[in-house]
């Protein structure tokens, strides 16, 4: 009977499930499902996974060692997407890698549907992350902290963290992912951290600094005056800057 391992929708959860499935059942019929989004099937046995950091670290090491850093990058990014079958796709990609001659080249086997899926998801997340390096807007709060709120589809915070850390090393800044309720926090001259399980204090987040309004107005004015009226083309603008990003942008 097919064994399905059930886990929480986190990297630790999914890696723990992969750990168990890999250990007990890698030669049998097995799969991974996320809690809350599964549709129970007949002739399946569902197994609850005990989620631990140790399991997660072990799987990370296993992937890096056997499939290489590049494949790990793809698998990890695929897990950050919002697709409900991502855990299963990653697990089966790992299983497939055992069969190919050079496991490090697993991501080139795009004819395998699971590998193709991982490839697609990882590209999607990386592309979305790139959009956010472009479209994130910070506002200065009363206490000098730069705050940004975004509503991404995938969990892109870790993908953009290094970029902004390198860019604003001397600033206190914070990005809040409203979809997944996660903070990316950067303290001046330190490295970034992810903070989960906290809620944004909307009242404090609304207290902007004295000059903030002025710069926002300057920027809005600039965006208008830089456009050439004779060439106006809102379709083209929408192609480059999809509407869904605009809700958190100063100039819209």
């Amino acid at each position: 009977m097919k064994q399905v391992y059930i886990c929480h929708d986190t990297i630790t959860g999914i890696f723990s499930a992969i750990y168990d499935a890999w250990k007990e059942n890698r030669d049998g019929d097995s799969g991974i499902a996320l809690r809350g989004v599964i549709i129970p099937q007949l002739f399946c046995e569902y197994i609850e996974v005990e989620e631990t950091v140790q399991k997660s670290v072990a799987v990370e090491r296993l992937i890096k060692k056997n499939l290489g850093y590049n494949a790990y990058w793809d698998l990890y990014h695929a897990l950050l997407s919002d697709d409900c079958e991502r855990a299963d796709a990653v697990y089966h990609t790992m299983l497939e890698a055992r069969k190919v001659k050079d496991s490090k080249k697993i991501m080139e086997h795009l004819s395998n549907p699971h590998v193709a899926k991982v490839f697609e998801l990882s590209r999607k997340v990386a592309n979305e992350a790139h959009f956010f390096t472009e479209f994130i807007r910070f506002r200065e709060l009363e206490n000098g902290v730069m705050l940004s709120e975004i509503t991404p589809k995938g969990q892109v915070l870790t993908c953009i963290a290094d970029h902004f850390t390198n860019r604003f090393p001397l600033e206190h800044w914070m990005v809040y992912d409203k979809t997944h309720r996660v903070f990316l926090v950067h303290q001046a001259k330190k490295n970034w951290v992810l903070v989960q399980g906290e809620i944004l204090d909307t009242e404090a987040a609304g207290r902007i600094s004295e000059t903030e309004e002025e710069f926002a107005e300057l920027w809005k004015g600039f965006c208008k005056s830089i456009s050439i009226e004779e060439r106006e083309n809102l379709n083209l603008q929408r192609n480059h800057l999809p509407i869904r990003f605009r809700q958190n942008m100063t100039e819209f």
Binding site: F135, I226, S227, N233, Q237
Partner: peptide, 16 residues
């Protein structure tokens, strides 16, 4: 990196 797009669809990357 482009940061925004003006109404004529051209990218705004630099403070021009």
């Amino acid at each position: 990196i482009c940061h925004s797009f003006s109404a004529d669809g051209r990218c705004i990357s630099l403070l021009k």
